[in-house]
Write a protein that binds this DNA or RNA. Structure first.
Lengths: 247, 247
DNA sequence: CGTGTTCTTGATGATCATCAAAGGTGGTGG
DNA sequence: CCACCACCTTTGATGATCATCAAGAACACG
């Protein structure tokens, strides 16, 4: 393999997430449906960064100068409330795209929960690429529609379920996110704190703590280490999300 | 004015919402940023319908065959829950676009709350238009980003606010929606039932009823007729949305 | 005018927030 | 290597908020 191809391969991984080992197709990220020529063009404009945990990719309300793709690590998206607390809008994992906005300001902040590797693309350059490659715009539209669906799902979760139902749904979505990343390991990474989860689910951190403790006592989950959890009784969690509801 | 121009004018209103009387620019709808030639091409593909209240524009999970623009009237977007109840994802008003999806199925249902006039465009034809006019795709992306922001706002509302805060935020958003449609009238149309509002806010209809009654008793709102409401003390409602929070 | 739907109001209780304090964990620096 | 510190987590006690159950009132419609 010549050096240029090697560099391209690396850069492709950077922007587009990992390549599926068996099928060779891109499974996540920004450029999944692009052909190779377009891809190289896009990648030439991007840069790669390694960042420590708690670093913030962008602040709410700051100028939207970059679009990011998470290559490794986990991030949370948050909005500040007038009283200083925060609402967590969602969590993002390897392969997810962050920070694309129609407006020129980020409507929420993105903070890393773990150390991470990200691919960063200047918004100005992206706009040029969008003009040249309409398929890329279609890709953003798809991503946006997907995010919209996820947010609506979360609205149902927060609006209509009990505390146990919400936590159950959250754990199941963690597992689902792992599956999309081809994680075979049944024990999931859960780098977010109880407070993060609480701010995501519209609960207090005490209620979250009590709830996962209850799940553990019932033998539904297991926590082999800090920041790691394994679902043992998926059926029971699913039942909670289907049955237990407010009204 | 020749008949063709008259028809075009009507059709433009149909798909694009009303033209702003003073500035002449399109203020809502699908085609706001399109030039006239593109617009005529799009409109040639669309048709217009008058529908009674309680009619459903599309069902959750059915084939996504059409995209709609509301010309007159109000609709609610809903998702069914496993136990038969519903979550209202949002309300839509004149000028709003409904039913655009990346997938081939509608992820939620749209039901009219009032009799309405809608403009309907076949999805198949839309895809052709999208290929011919990339600007149109950009327009959908903007719409999607806007919807995403609104849904996130609602997530904050449902996740972090008390019952009074949620109802206050809802009333303020109603007023805001009216303002965007250039409604000068201070008394707002509120065609949704208490149950609809409750399903939107993650409350019960009794709590909604008690809350707006409380607002009325305090002189913060007025209900001159069924389905009509006027905000008298905007400041008080704003205060509720800023202050009163769970945690 | 009668009937079904929507709205209001009351009484009661469950869920979950709040306040409080103690036990863990990881990281840092002496 | 250990001690200390900051932060996270757990657990308990108490009470406020809001769901639930119930019944009557107002309204819309045919």
């Amino acid at each position: 393999m010549n050096p240029l191809d090697a560099a391209r391969g690396l850069a492709r991984d950077a922007l587009g997430g990992e390549i599926c080992g068996t099928c060779g197709s891109r499974v996540t990220g920004l450029c999944r449906p692009l052909d190779a020529a377009t891809l190289d063009d896009v990648l030439a404009e991007a840069e790669q960064l390694d960042l420590p945990a708690r670093n913030t990719l962008f602040e709410e309300g700051s100028r939207a100068g970059h679009v990011f793709t998470l290559i490794q690590g986990t991030a949370k998206l948050t909005r500040l409330l007038p009283d200083g607390r925060q609402q967590v809008l969602g969590f993002r994992f390897a392969g997810d795209v962050l920070g694309y906005t129609a407006s020129d300001r980020y409507p929420f902040a993105a903070e890393l929960l773990t150390s991470a590797r990200v691919c960063r693309l200047e918004r100005r350059r992206l706009d040029g690429l969008l003009r040249r490659y309409p398929a890329l715009e279609r890709r953003f539209l798809d991503l946006c529609v997907q995010e919209l669906a996820a947010t609506q799902e979360q609205l149902v979760n927060v609006g209509r379920r009990t505390a146990e139902g919400r936590v159950a749904a959250f754990l199941l979505s963690l597992a689902e996110a792992g599956r999309r990343r081809n994680q075979a390991d049944p024990v999931l990474a859960m780098p977010m704190t109880r407070a993060d989860i609480a701010d995501f689910l519209g609960l207090t951190l005490e209620t979250v703590s009590r709830t996962v403790t209850a799940f553990r006592r019932r033998g539904w989950v297991r926590e082999p280490a800090h920041g790691r959890i394994e679902i043992l009784r998926r059926d029971q969690l699913v039942e909670l999300t289907e049955g237990a509801a407010i009204d």
